[in-house]
Structure formats: structure tokens, C-alpha cells
Design a protein around this nucleic acid. Sequence first.
DNA 1: TTCCAGCCTCCCGTTACGTGAGAGTCAAGT
DNA 2: ACTTGACTCTCACGTAACGGGAGGCTGGAA
Lengths: 252, 252
Amino acid sequence: MSYSIGKVAELAGVTVRTLHHYDEIGLLSPSDRTSTGYRRYDDADLERLQQIRYYRELEFSLEEIAAILDDPKADATSHLRRQHQLLTERITRLEKMVNAIEFAMEATKVGIKLTPQERFEVWGDFDPDQYAEEAEQRWGDTDAYQESVRKTSQYTKEDWLRIKEQSEDWGRRIVAVMDSGAAADSPEAMELAEEHRQHISQWYYECSYEIQTGLAEMYLADERFMATYEAIKPGLTVFLHDAIMANAVARS
Amino acid sequence: MSYSIGKVAELAGVTVRTLHHYDEIGLLSPSDRTSTGYRRYDDADLERLQQIRYYRELEFSLEEIAAILDDPKADATSHLRRQHQLLTERITRLEKMVNAIEFAMEATKVGIKLTPQERFEVWGDFDPDQYAEEAEQRWGDTDAYQESVRKTSQYTKEDWLRIKEQSEDWGRRIVAVMDSGAAADSPEAMELAEEHRQHISQWYYECSYEIQTGLAEMYLADERFMATYEAIKPGLTVFLHDAIMANAVARS
DNA sequence: TTCCAGCCTCCCGTTACGTGAGAGTCAAGT
DNA sequence: ACTTGACTCTCACGTAACGGGAGGCTGGAA
């Protein structure tokens, strides 16, 4: 059984010109020609083309592929094994990219800026432990972060609008409480701290009192969060922190 | 805060030349220059570069990326959402490629040839139902195939040598039984049918009598399997089929 | 002041094809 | 036997996305 160049192109999902090119550079020359010069590809040619396609998908150059495939020490199975490993590595990398994007989405929701390291972590080659530590510190609890990502990836535009509206409303009310001169451990302030916790639980992740107090600590420690709250009203970060602490103590 | 071109290149994992190129074609021009002509990139530039890198990873051309990023209707979040979707699609495709490779490895072990469709299923755009049907027919049971892939992917070279030795030994013995003139429903033949079943159970997947009889049917129906067995000894396929049937009836 | 790494602007080279041009070929239908 | 439309052939130039210098300025540390 042999195949015309057009048929092979269709099967393998490449253009006829590509096959011409592979023939030109000697990477894949059809095992036969008709008397009129038409190329004829057989099963062995197809197997070689399959290998070429996989290695190309893995971004090997044609020259490298030629060297790899013509290596007498490597047989078909070893190629498959190698491709298998490279593919799974690649999948891992793409999954990291997906995580990074979800992280970036989270960040823009909350209104914080990413550090340059965070932006390019997938490509840059800096210490991965450092990142893990930062994320741990930022979110207090990694499981919570996972849950958050899982939940929020389902949200529609309307959901986000609702969340935004809700948190802006909450912002106005806590500012009003501050303006009224009430203390951070006043019932009104504590009520808003409680609402803050429930808002997070509802939309992002189950937020216990321990986690919330962790967040409060972080608001003071992380200048990006700090900037967000201070932009609404100076002193709000500390006020919220104190209200959360008072509320947590009172309720538990 | 602003960054030199070298620093940006290091952060983003690209070359300085690449950033020069992006500047040349107007895709990413640094927001500032020093009095001496040095490029200075700020946070907004980095964000744009981040988007560029993600879209590039997804194999968009620079021209397309420029069009996408300069579209006033799209904001940062919509880009992230889009990239998220494209990335997960890509992961799915790569996972299909991994499956295809595992399938190809299985096939070479068993000594059957792949059809052209099977070779290029990941790239070609033929009817996917047709393939599913073929796989179903070939393996009788999809779960079994999954289990097989899972198990065999762990095997070492020594394992494979052992398996090969074992099955060649079995081949010699069943040929001997045939040569002795024994019937397919003789105790010796049935014993070897039973061994065939246990061999599969041990190395590939839990092989019940129903599954084994399914395999026996398939050996007759699929000329690629047929070729394998007939190469050992003409008439072996039918003999094995009958022995399996007799054994299955007797044991259950 | 002296380095040397870093940056600048040309500018030519490379890879993996795309895209015709012009001409021969094949199989199906009349 | 003739036509016709889809395929295929071999040049041959074009393109995208950089790579890799050459030759010359800059900037901060010693």
C-alpha cells in the first residue's frame, strides 16, 4: 500500500509544500516514485513522518530531528519513550502557566499588582522555593487558595460585577463607621469585619476566623494590599485589622 | 520603578534582540528612554510583554498579537480568560498526544502496525467517532485498555524482556500441542488458553473470561492480530480461538 | 581615569516553510 | 478519443521572527 503526496499531507495534517521541503533537505524522501515522477509514500515513510511531527511539536529543529532519527543507536520504541517524557514535561509547564494565569486573574480582581517575578515565573529561571514561600505568606493557606481558584474560574461577568458592587458597598459602610468616630472594637465595626469574612467565604473560599486574622496580619505586612485599602481611606488598613481581631476574639 | 532592557530580558526569559525586534515593529516600545537613548521599561510595559509571551506560547503571530492587544474592546482580564481557555485546550491536545504515544508503544509491543489514521489522529481532522469505535472494537473494553496503558507505562526494559520471553515460551508450547494433533478442546490446549488469560491479567489488565472470548473473536476479525499468530504457525489463530472458547465454557 | 559590562544602531544570515508560475498527469465523464 | 478539473512536478522568489555580529557610545565601580 502506498500513498500520494496529497493523501499523506491530508492524513498528517501538513501541506504538500512541507513534504516537498522535507524531501528537498533529505529529511523524508518518499521510498518510491512513479514513472512520471510522482512521489509515493509507504508505511515506513509514514512512520518516519509521524516521528517528525511529534518532534516538531516539541520544537526540535529539522536538523536536530534528522540527527535523532538517523541515529542507529535509537529504535522506534526509544523515540516514543523520549517523546512521551518530553510531552509530559511540556504538559506540566503548561499547567504551571494555567496556574499563573489564574493567579494573575485573582490578583487583578483584588486589585493588587504582580511583581515582575510573578509575571514571568514560567519562563524565568529563579528560585522556585522563593515563590512558594511568597504565595504561602500571601494566602496564609494554600488549600484556601486552591479552592478560591477553583470557585472563581466558574464565575461569569455578572458574578464579578455583583462581587465588585458588594465589596464597594461594604467599603463605603466601613468608611462611614470610621468617619463616625466609632472604635475598631465597636459593634458596628465588628459587624463589618464579620461581613468581610462572610464575603470571602461566599465568593472565594471558606474563611475561618483563624484565616481571617491571618489575612488581617497580611494586610499590614503586604504593601500591595495596604495600598489598596489606604487608597480608600487612610488608616483603614489598621482599622480593619483591629476590627477583625476584636471580632475574632469575641466570636470564638 | 523602571527596568533596563537587559533586566527585562532576563526577567521574561527572552533575548535583548527580541525586545529590539518588538520595538522595531512597534509591538512593544518602551514607555521611556534615557537622555542617552537607553530603553526604559515600566510596569505597564511588563504587563504587555507578559501578554505577548503568553500569546506567543500559544503560537499567535506577532501581527495577530498586536491586533489583539490593541483592541480597545478587550481588557486585561479578558485576555487572561482567553489565554486560560486556549491553554487548557492545548493541554488537552497534548494529553491526547501522550495517549496516542502510549497506544503506539502498546502496538509495537504486540507487534501490530498502526493505521495511517491512528498515526496522525492528533493532527488530522477525520471523524473522531470512527476512531473511538475502532479502539473499542480492538480492545473490547475501554477500561481494560486504560488499565493496560497505566500498568505498562511503568515497566522497565527488563520487564519487557521477561514478558517477551514468557510469551515466546507459551507460543512454542501451543505450537507443540497443535503439532501433537490434540484438539482445541483438549485439556492441554485449554490449559494453554488459561495461561494466555493469566498472562494478560498479570502484565496488562484484569482479563475475565468474557474479555478473553472477546479477544478470541477479535483475533479472527482483525487481520493485524491474525497476521501475528499466523506467522507463528498457520491455523494457530483458529486453534487458539477454539481453545479459549472451550476453556471459557468449561471454567464458568 | 580607567575599565569592562551593558547598551545603541545598522545590517546581513537563517529556518521552515508560503506562494505563485508554468507545465505535465490522471481519472472520470461524454 | 477528447475534454476537463483536480493533482502533481520543478524552479524560484517572499516572509516571519528573530540570531549574530560590527563598530561605537555609556555608566558605575575601582
